[in-house]
């Protein structure tokens, strides 16, 4: 397969995953704010931080209210990482590689892009927004499902998955980083019902609540959620799951250079060797930072190995 197309598919995988994660974040945050008394609510500003937009958003000196933040994340022209721009990037990267994929995938992606362009105008009502984002998550899942059900599991598919899992692992660490700061109470034993609700929202933003309940019988608490989302082997949005998937994918790719594999092994070691019990605040933030840096190194290694600049 052509290096150029491998790169396009990798980015398509990343952007589509990013679009889905963004949609989940916004919907869950809206729900969370409805459940919390106003004093306890962290509002919408954390979403700006999770998406790495704090500097850009502040530079505009605007209030971090729902309307401003959501508009910024969904359709702001100044935000190159807006949902609208992300969908366009997912589509453009797929466009050049479309001949490698089942035709339906392009049709779905194109349909999703057109829908996004029509609806993400900045004037989306709350109810329509919720409905649109819920559909968008399903549309993304439909594309993933079509790929799984209809596409040869060849290298083209591998590169989409590599992009998807790297992005997903990264997003999970970002959510934990920001939410971890906001939410972890000083006294871990004394969980108020609201904190439990907040952790539930973290799980829900990753559609992990039900799965968590099946794995962990105790009521929702910070330590277990952290362990579940970082180290669980079976939940497809946990960081460890993503890393294991990446390891298997990268092992199957051609080439002598093993720098990408080494980067993944390093990540797994970092994750396994850190004590998670009681991890909160600053140390938690540091761990997530470290994981994010190592994920970025993995990205570099993948790029240098399979699509060195042409």
């Amino acid at each position: 397969m052509l290096s150029r197309l491998a790169e396009n598919l990798y980015w398509h995988g990343r952007y589509l995953e990013r679009a889905e994660d963004l949609a989940r974040l916004i919907n869950v945050n809206a729900h969370l704010n409805l459940d919390l008394p106003s004093g306890l609510s962290a509002g919408w500003e954390p979403l700006v931080r999770i998406t790495g937009n704090a500097a850009r958003f502040k530079a505009e000196e605007r209030e971090a209210g729902e309307r401003q933040v959501v508009r910024f994340l969904l359709s702001d022209e100044a935000n190159s990482g807006s949902l609208k721009a992300t969908l366009e990037n997912a589509r453009e990267n797929l466009r050049s590689a479309r001949d490698l994929l089942p035709r339906e995938v392009w049709e779905q992606m194109n349909g999703l892009y057109i829908k996004g362009n029509e609806q993400l105008t900045g004037n989306l009502s709350k109810r329509r927004r919720h409905e649109f984002l819920r559909e968008l998550i399903l549309d993304c899942q439909q594309i993933a499902g079509t790929l799984l059900g209809c596409m040869s599991q060849d290298h083209a598919y591998d590169f989409i998955l590599i992009g998807r899992y790297l992005e997903r692992a990264d997003m999970t660490t970002r959510i934990l980083e920001v939410r971890g700061y906001d939410l972890l109470p000083d006294d871990i034993e004394n969980l108020s019902p609201y904190e439990s609700i907040q952790w539930m929202s973290v799980l829900k933003s990753l559609t992990g609540y039900q799965m968590y309940r099946r794995h962990v019988r105790l009521r929702v608490n910070g330590n277990d959620v952290l362990r579940f989302l970082l180290r669980n082997d079976e939940f497809p949005r946990s960081v460890m799951f993503c890393l294991r998937a990446l390891e298997a994918l990268i092992e199957g790719l051609p080439g002598e250079d093993d720098q990408a594999l080494r980067a993944i092994t390093r990540l797994q070691r970092t994750l396994n060797e850190t004590k998670l019990v009681g991890l909160r605040g600053e140390p938690l933030g540091k761990l997530m930072d470290k994981l994010q840096i190592e994920l970025a190194e993995t990205h570099d290694a993948v790029r240098q190995t399979w699509f060195p600049s042409l």
Binding site: M1, L2, S3, R4, S96, W306
Partner: peptide, 24 residues
């Protein structure tokens, strides 16, 4: 078949044409 752009192809000293792929 592959859809290539000019930058995906290279001609060597032997006048053979190659494309750049993930496997070389």
């Amino acid at each position: 078949v592959q859809l290539v752009e000019g930058r995906d192809l290279v001609v060597d000293d032997n006048d053979d044409v190659y494309m750049r792929t993930v496997a070389g």
